[in-house]
């Protein structure tokens, strides 16, 4: 898409919204603005980002309160119409809480907050957020979460795998899917999934923190750049 109109939802307690706005603004021709959580509508927009952070202080469960923010009804309608929604970290947690994506994110197996670079393998490159990548690409991306252990019922996991909804999977630097490369105990090394149509995508790693040379890592840029294809 050319000159995408991109909105980043601001929830109280989010802390990656500026990084996300900044990184998205690097896309040539993109018009990026924030969307306040109390707005009734996402407005005229092509892509909605739900950024990382700790919406509502993670009260009750990560993403549980943000799900009921006034703007989320409009986000759900937007997604229903095929609009592109990308949830990063806490944004992924919000997407599972509001059932735009299946499953849930549980406390890391190690009980530790993990802030480090990991690797993920791109499992499909036919959704709006991965079109500029190749299947099998290995990306080095930062994670920063305490609750990133992807969990879903056995039936849901089977259906995700059968439908190819796992978009990125934790791997080692050579792209091998191993238990050692799984930072948080996520089922099937799942780092990010999409809905059946591929227009809603949630992932725990932070591509926006790895999107320009000055940050020492541009592996996340491919995800943002995909929005232009």
């Amino acid at each position: 898409m050319k000159n995408p109109k991109i909105g980043v939802v601001l929830f109280p307690g989010a802390n990656c919204e500026r990084d996300t706005i900044h990184a998205a603004s690097l896309l040539p021709g993109a018009a990026v603005r924030h969307i306040w959580h109390k707005d009734a509508s996402v407005g005229d927009i092509d892509v909605v980002f739900l950024p990382g952070g700790f919406s509502y202080g993670d009260a009750l469960r990560c993403g549980a309160i943000a799900r009921f923010s006034p703007v989320m009804g409009s986000v759900a309608e937007f997604a229903e119409k095929g609009g592109i929604v990308i949830g990063i970290c806490n944004g992924f947690q919000v997407l599972t809480e509001c059932h735009l994506l299946p499953g849930a994110l549980l406390m890391n197996e190690s009980r530790k907050f993990i802030c480090k670079n990991i690797h993920v393998r791109v499992e499909r490159n036919d959704i709006p957020a991965t079109r500029a990548l190749k299947k099998g690409d290995v990306l080095k991306l930062p994670i920063a979460h305490g609750e990133g252990r992807y969990y879903a019922s056995t039936e849901t996991i089977q259906s995700l795998e059968a439908n190819g909804q796992v978009v990125v999977r934790y791997c080692d630097e050579n792209g091998n899917i191993t238990p050692e490369a799984n930072p948080n105990g996520a089922l099937n090394n799942i780092a990010g999934i999409c809905n059946g149509r591929g227009n809603v995508f949630g992932l725990m790693p932070h591509p926006e923190r790895a999107s320009e040379p000055i940050l020492g890592n541009t592996d996340g840029w491919g995800i943002l750049k995909s929005l232009l294809t």
Binding site: R61, A64, F68, T96, G103, A104, Y151, A152, S153
Partner: peptide
């Protein structure tokens, strides 16, 4: 509706 997430 809110206090629990039936998935988990």
């Amino acid at each position: 509706k809110l206090l629990s997430n039936p998935v988990m």
